[in-house]
Amino acid sequence: MTFEHFSIGVGVALLLLMIPAMCRIVMGPTTMDRIVGANMVGTKTTVLLVIIGVIFGKVDMFIDFALTYALLNFTGAIAAARYLRHKGRRGIVLASTSEESVCERA
């Protein structure tokens, strides 16, 4: 068994192990659960790109894709977190009450 065969096996195993995260994306009760699952799938896609590079023997090309994908995944996760934080229940409740109280005082 060469290392290429082993790499193909690792790639298939990664794809199969992504299924729980996919399940969490589909059935997650809140939006944040779905985003956590998507973030996990995105991180593993970085690894899959490296594995594809090893299988095709062009790691030097695919490593750039992997780095770019990791960067975009990170930015997407941060942006989703920021967006949902502003729409969140706790944040809005506290902000509206304190604003109201300050306005009353004024």
């Binding site: 902000a95 304190s98 604003e99 300050v102 306005c103 004024a106």
Partner: peptide
Amino acid sequence: ACSGEFSTSD
């Protein structure tokens, strides 16, 4: 004028 103090805390 409405939310002077609130903006700083925010």
